[in-house]
Measured scan of single mutants.
Amino acid sequence: MMAYMNPGPHYSVNALALSGPSVDLMHQAVPYPSAPRKQRRERTTFTRSQLEELEALFAKTQYPDVYAREEVALKINLPESRVQVWFKNRRAKCRQQRQQQKQQQQPPGGQAKARPAKRKAGTSPRPSTDVCPDPLGISDSYSPPLPGPSGSPTTAVATVSIWSPASESPLPEAQRAGLVASGPSLTSAPYAMTYAPASAFCSSPSAYGSPSSYFSGLDPYLSPMVPQLGGPALSPLSGPSVGPSLAQSPTSLSGQSYGAYSPVDSLEFKDPTGTWKFTYNPMDPLDYKDQSAWKFQIL
């Protein structure tokens, strides 16, 4: 009977010793046993002879290597770790002494450095960015050149030099007046198309007034536009458009034309069986010896 009264063996659950049927240790109110408190290391007290050895090595170098620390530790009968900690504390003490010396050398008012006064946003004049500046400075420094007289040679050079070769001289006033084509001369031969040399188009003023001019072949195509416009036809070669000034309004060009419109200028042929003959000019830059190549039959 006494065997049943004795408590059973101890069981360990999660490293906790349980005594038989008792489960009081598993209750929430019972805390787990805490780790033992780490003991504080005792402070090391250095003797005068030990301090002399350490100070002598510190005077040589503030960062001794492990071999120098072990050698000193053997002399003063201390572990190497204590020597390492002593050098660490000695360097910190040396830095603190240097900072105190710097503070003593500075004057009393030198510690508080005078800061520059901050400028207020409204006091300083700042350039306004509302208006974009002129990058080319046209509004201040540029002045347009004065327009020359209508009959000045410089204007003629600016007008005619675009179309004339570089080897030719500017046309005088008398020749510029001949550039304007007359109405009857352009409409006299509506079906004849003559190819003149390129030099005649640039230099010869008579080429624009003769039936064999460069633009005589364009007349049949330009004249039928007159009834559609409801007024006189516009002429690209009329009046002052080739003269001194090219800047004319469309209203000033509306009254200039080749001449009176005639039914002869239409595109319809009077004789459907007729042929169109292209007159060959020996001055043509295209060297075609066979003139029969310039004739064709309209079917």
Rank of each mutant, 00 (worst) to 15 (best):
M5R: 03
G8L: 11
G8Q: 02
S12N: 02
V13H: 02
L16H: 02
A17T: 07
L18P: 00
M26W: 12
Y32N: 02
Y32L: 07
K38F: 14
Q39Y: 15
R40G: 13
R43C: 13
T44S: 15
T44G: 11
T47R: 03
T47W: 11
L51D: 14
L51H: 13
L54E: 13
L54H: 12
L57A: 05
F58Y: 10
A59P: 12
A59D: 05
Q62M: 05
Y63N: 12
A68Y: 07
R69Y: 12
R69H: 13
K75H: 07
K75P: 14
I76H: 11
L78T: 14
P79V: 08
V83E: 14
Q84E: 15
W86T: 15
F87D: 12
F87N: 15
K88L: 15
K88N: 14
R90K: 07
R90T: 15
R90Q: 13
R91M: 14
R95K: 04
R95L: 14
Q97M: 05
R98D: 05
Q99W: 08
K102T: 04
K102E: 02
Q103N: 08
P107Y: 03
G109F: 04
A114L: 10
A114H: 02
K118G: 01
P127N: 12
C132A: 04
P133C: 13
P135Y: 06
S139Y: 05
Y142F: 05
S143W: 10
L146Y: 07
P147Q: 09
S150A: 02
G151Y: 07
S152C: 05
A158K: 06
A158E: 01
T159I: 15
S164H: 04
P165E: 01
S167T: 09
S169W: 12
P172L: 13
A174F: 13
L179Y: 03
S182R: 11
S185C: 13
Y191Q: 01
A192L: 13
M193Q: 00
T194L: 12
Y195N: 02
A196I: 12
A196K: 06
S199L: 15
C202N: 04
C202D: 00
P205I: 11
P205E: 00
A207V: 04
P211S: 03
S212W: 12
Y214R: 07
Y214L: 09
G217I: 09
S223P: 05
S223F: 13
Q228T: 11
Q228N: 06
Q228M: 13
L229M: 04
P232L: 14
P236E: 02
P240V: 13
V242T: 06
P244N: 08
Y261P: 05
P263M: 11
V264R: 11
K270I: 12
K270M: 10
D271I: 13
T273S: 06
W276P: 00
N281F: 14
M283P: 09
Y288D: 02
Y288M: 08
L299D: 00
L299F: 06
